[in-house]
Simulated assay, not measured.
Amino acid sequence: MIDGDTLQCTDGRRIRLRGIDAPERGERGHRAATEALRRRVEGRSVTVTPHHINRGRIVADVTVEGRNVGQELDRLGHSKRRGARR
């Protein structure tokens, strides 16, 4: 895990969850958001649906067992929704 809205795959790719913004390092809620993302994806098979590249990261929808991880983090209060540019 990089933080609450970005993860690093075992092959080195960085995936930014599309549509959410989690607290950055040093901001309130950063640790909780990062741990919430970790609990949802670590050791599990994930599906990555890429949308575009931003700052060297793939911006994508990430699902685990049919559930959109970004939407779950938002619903649980670990992030806020980003603009619908994508």
Rank of each mutant, 00 (worst) to 15 (best):
G43E: 02
R39Y: 05
V41C: 02
A32I: 02
P50T: 02
R31H: 12
V41R: 04
R25E: 09
A36D: 07
E35K: 02
R31K: 11
R38T: 12
I53V: 12
G43H: 03
E35G: 00
R38H: 14
H52C: 09
V48F: 07
L37I: 01
L37H: 01
I53K: 03
T49V: 15
V46Q: 06
A33T: 01
H51G: 11
D61S: 14
R55F: 15
A33G: 08
P50K: 08
P50D: 03
R44Y: 01
I53G: 00
T49Q: 14
A33K: 02
I58T: 15
R31V: 09
T47Q: 14
R31M: 09
S45L: 11
R28N: 14
G56K: 12
A36P: 05
T34N: 02
V59Y: 02
A32L: 10
D61M: 11
R25Q: 13
H51T: 14
G56R: 14
G56H: 13
G43V: 04
A60F: 06
G26Y: 00
V46F: 02
E24L: 06
R57V: 05
R55M: 12
R40G: 04
R39G: 05
L37F: 00
E42H: 07
E42T: 08
D61P: 06
R55K: 11
R28H: 12
H51F: 13
G29R: 05
G43S: 06
R40S: 07
S45H: 09
H30N: 09
G56P: 13
H51Y: 15
R31A: 13
V46N: 02
G29Q: 10
R25I: 10
S45E: 14
T47G: 05
A33Q: 03
H51R: 15
T47R: 14
A32D: 09
G43Q: 05
I58Q: 03
H30M: 03
A36W: 03
R55L: 13
G26F: 06
R28G: 06
R57E: 03
A60M: 04
E42R: 11
R57F: 00
A60K: 00
I53T: 08
L37W: 00
I58P: 01
R38W: 13
H52V: 08
R44E: 03
D61G: 12
E35D: 06
H52M: 08
R57N: 04
T34W: 01
D61L: 12
E42A: 15
R25D: 06
A33W: 03
R25H: 04
G29Y: 11
A33E: 00
P50C: 03
A60T: 09
